[in-house]
Amino acid sequence: MFTGIVEELGEIVGVEPLGDSARLAIRGPLVTQDAVHGASIAVNGVCLTVVDLKDDVFTADIMKETLDRSALGGVEPGSRVNLERPVRLADRLGGHLVQGHVDGVAEIVSREPGEHWDVVTVSLPPELSRYVVGKGSITVDGISLTVVEAATDWFTVSLIPTTLALTTLGHKGPGDPVNLEVDVVAKYVERLMGADR
């Protein structure tokens, strides 16, 4: 379980295609400080398992499901990625409950720079639209954000200077892919209400 509060902007240092899967090597000096084999680290919002660790680089395998549902299949050496370690039970929940299970890939549609923040419009896949509401929570590339406005095929978020400086969203522009994870609470409520029976 994660909170969507990015700890570090890491870097892809290696990509090894393995047919219907791949192995990524990711540099992250902060998140590797206490990492061990089998630990979980969210990479652009995707929960990955550490399979090897050397100095400040960890490797993780991504299977077909992850390649199909996330934008990680498009990363290459030099790509910047958001990194977060799992939350500890004693920690404050600074963002919202994030599982690291990406629901879909979207694109940045536009960004409007403000004096101190940017307003970013992100496309919204139709199957996720019902879970996104104004002032609700959404995870974009692993970043816990508050939805400003939601329509059927797009939503907006405001990015404060810290988010712009310390995450991938400070560097991405129109047309760039982003991973989305909707609020899991909304999915559970829908299931309990019988909407998907």
Rank of each mutant, 00 (worst) to 15 (best):
L192D: 09
V46D: 07
A90E: 12
V43R: 03
G100Q: 03
R23D: 06
E84K: 12
G28P: 01
L169F: 07
E8T: 05
E190N: 09
A39P: 03
I12H: 00
P177F: 02
Q99K: 04
D176M: 04
H96W: 10
L48V: 10
V50K: 06
G173R: 12
G136W: 10
L89D: 00
G142S: 06
V157S: 01
H101R: 04
P177E: 05
G45F: 08
E11R: 14
I108N: 06
G78I: 03
G28E: 03
R88T: 12
L48H: 10
H96L: 10
V81N: 04
Q99L: 08
L30Y: 07
V120T: 14
A39C: 10
E115S: 08
A165W: 00
T121L: 01
T3V: 11
T66R: 04
G134A: 15
S21G: 14
V57G: 11
S158I: 00
I62D: 06
R191Q: 14
E181C: 09
R92G: 08
M63C: 14
E7S: 08
G170C: 08
V13M: 07
E7C: 11
S40P: 02
R23N: 08
D118M: 01
L9G: 08
K172F: 05
I12L: 03
S123H: 06
L93K: 04
V51K: 09
L169V: 08
T32N: 04
A42T: 07
T139Q: 01
T59N: 09
N44W: 06
G94C: 11
G19T: 02
V43P: 02
G45N: 13
R69C: 11
V119I: 13
T156S: 10
E112T: 15
